[in-house]
Simulated scan of single mutants.
Amino acid sequence: MNYLQIESFLKTIELGSMTKASNALFISQSTLSDRITKLEDELGFNLFTRGHGSRGVSLTERGISFVGFAKKYLSLMDDIEDWKIDDSERVELRIGGPHSLNSFLLNSFYRNFTDSNKVKLYISSHWNYSIYTLINTYELDLGLVSRPFGYRHLKTKELFKEELYIVYNNNYSDYSSIKNELDLKKEDEIHLDWGPDYEIWNQNFWSETSKPKISVDSAELVYEFLKSKNAWAVMPVCVYNYLNKYNNNLSKINGLDSIYRTIYLVTQREPKDIVSNLTKKLESYILELEKNGLCQNLL
């Protein structure tokens, strides 16, 4: 089994014809047919049904089940070829963080850093503990978390604090006259875990037996479920500003105690130079955010 055989198989499926597939691959139809036959011989079963007078190609049941494996094979081979490229020709950086930070606060920073440093960024969203695990196994180079964990071989430091707003959708609810957190009903909350400070704030006003209306795992879902009568939620200022920029139907409750979430930077104890470079630029970006009142620098 080799790359050319798998490629010929998938191209035939994609175009629905061996003639079209051979033309697209710039090979003769007999060569393409020979590749597929050898692949079938190695697998021990037919991939295509064969019959006189049939138009196009038709997969056998085993052929259908093999398609997924074939695609994974090509993808893996492509990844290996990328990996073989000399590191001096390519700089890659893998960053993990909460979805709310990646999408609503740091998106422009990532874009500008990539443009100015010719770096190939891989940005992914994970839960806090998963970020530590992925950095510890060298699958991420840098992480941003809202809940620190003790990993002996990793370095964690405070980066910034961001205020959390108590908000509601003014098309469905009216909390403009609220003067105290206890005037809010826990069973009307759209809940998303924003970290330890948020948990402490919650425990100060409601018992453990009090349950929210619903718990979700993304800011987008918080926004959607705020379209319910009397619903309210807590969200970071970056999420509030971003969502209101396009919808302008969220209102925050003023006059209550301030709530914050703290964001921590996680790296290896001896990070790569490119990680140190990004960290310095990120710290400068945080200072600019602080000047605009969007966060509180903790460096």
Rank of each mutant, 00 (worst) to 15 (best):
N107H: 13
T60V: 04
K157W: 08
S228M: 06
G51F: 02
L59E: 03
K252R: 13
S173V: 09
I85K: 14
E220C: 01
F113Q: 05
K272S: 12
S251A: 06
S8L: 10
L74Y: 05
K72W: 04
F9V: 11
V91F: 03
K84M: 13
K272A: 15
V91D: 04
P236D: 08
D174T: 09
F66V: 03
E288S: 11
N247D: 09
K291I: 10
D78C: 03
T114E: 09
V167D: 08
E220M: 05
G53R: 03
K227F: 06
S54Q: 14
M18C: 05
K291S: 13
L121Y: 01
W201T: 00
N46M: 13
G143R: 10
Q203M: 10
I85R: 13
K157V: 14
N171I: 11
L250W: 10
K84V: 14
L154A: 04
Q29F: 00
L265A: 00
V234F: 01
A21R: 02
R269P: 03
F26G: 07
G293K: 11
F225A: 04
N180C: 07
D41V: 13
L101C: 00
G143Y: 12
L243N: 01
L121G: 01
K71P: 00
E158L: 07
L39F: 10
S228K: 06
A233W: 02
E189N: 10
Y223N: 05
P148D: 08
Y168M: 00
L25C: 07
L93I: 08
I123G: 07
M18V: 09
L76F: 14
A70T: 04
Y165E: 06
E89S: 15
L265E: 00
E7P: 03
T31M: 05
V239R: 04
E208W: 13
Y165I: 05
S8G: 12
S125L: 02
P196R: 05
E163A: 02
R55P: 00
S58F: 13
K179I: 07
V57T: 03
S218G: 06
M235S: 01
I36S: 08
D79A: 15
R50I: 15
Y175K: 01
D78E: 15
S108D: 12
K161F: 05
Y264L: 03
V239E: 08
N241F: 09
H153A: 14
E158W: 03
Y132A: 04
Y242T: 06
E139F: 07
P196A: 06
R94P: 04
F225M: 11
V145K: 05
S108N: 09
E199R: 10
H191K: 06
N46Y: 13
K11L: 07
R147K: 14
I13C: 11
K291M: 09
K245M: 09
V216N: 02
L144D: 11
R94L: 08
K272P: 03
S258Y: 08
L164C: 11
L105H: 00
G44N: 02
D86N: 15
T133L: 11
I64Q: 12
Y223D: 06
K84A: 14
L140V: 02
Y3N: 02
N117A: 06
T267C: 04
N170G: 06
R147W: 12
G97P: 07
K161M: 13
Y132K: 05
N169D: 15
N107D: 15
L142Q: 01
